[in-house]
Amino acid sequence: MITMENVCKSYRIAKRNAGFQAACKALFHREYEEVCALRNVSFTIGDGEMVGYIGPNGAGKSSTIKILSGILTPDSGRVTVDGRLLFGGKVHGSAGRENSAGSGFQVSGGIHEYRNVPGSGTICGCDVLPSCRPSTRKEKYSRIEHVRRIGVVFGQRSQLWWDVPVIDSFELLKDIYSVSDPVYRGNLEELTELLNLKELLRTPARQLSLGQRMRCEIAASLLHSPRILFLDEPTIGLDAVSKLAVRDFIKRQNRIHGTTVILTTHDMQDIEALTKRIILIGKGRILMDGTLEDIKKGGASMDETLAELYRAYEI
């Protein structure tokens, strides 16, 4: 089970106007803008659930995935995975609870809406306290323990070693995750067959096409049989056949191994094919947490429905 409670994350971004004059001015005086990637994001995802995490560009999808995979430290809030505290330090009791009660929680037509009431003494609507800086030793321990049990695919980056055959990368991952021989062989066989990798394993990663590489990337994240799989735009750049193969595969993984899958994508067909539950995020806030049926309207296509939804929330 994954829970996020009142998670906030902001980035400081240096901004300036175009042109040489502005550049010179920025040498002496720099203007920063606090950009809130996430504001009081809270949700709970049960074991074996498949959740689509959607939102327009820059909504905070990837930030959430990065926090859940332990890469990014949130400014405040609590994150627990399978009951283990990933971020959040001590239990902050009433302070946090009050806040979640303060954010208007309404149920309207099956759609749960979260509206945060920006309180006073906050940075961009987020609680400044409680801080999420757990004691140093514990944090490191839990990052390593945590990542052992998750699999992550970042659609836009590669985890395969560029210059060596894919199988070498796999063998290395086996050692890094301390996967035992029989488990590794079993997983590799299954993945090779389902994702059709047989021809690709002996090729250097740099000579694979995007779609071929993506199939290998997905396999690479599953070699250690993770309980939770984070997929950040996994079907980016895939052809129709590969897309279907990847979708089937993810569904099967969920059905047979009970893997919890959290998926971000802009491809509504992915969402339609894979997930029942969708969480909509916009401007760093959770706007909706419901099912596909909740937002579907008559004969409109998924993309139209979604665009309509974005407009309705003004995001």
Binding site: K66, S69, G70, I71, K140, R143, I144, E145, V147, R148, I150, V152, F154, R157, S158, Q159, I176, Y177, S178
Partner: peptide, 13 residues
């Protein structure tokens, strides 16, 4: 370039 992302999701120091 963000390559650090994957480095950090490995169970190693």
């Amino acid at each position: 370039d963000g390559g650090i992302a994957y480095e950090l999701c490995r169970p190693v120091s």
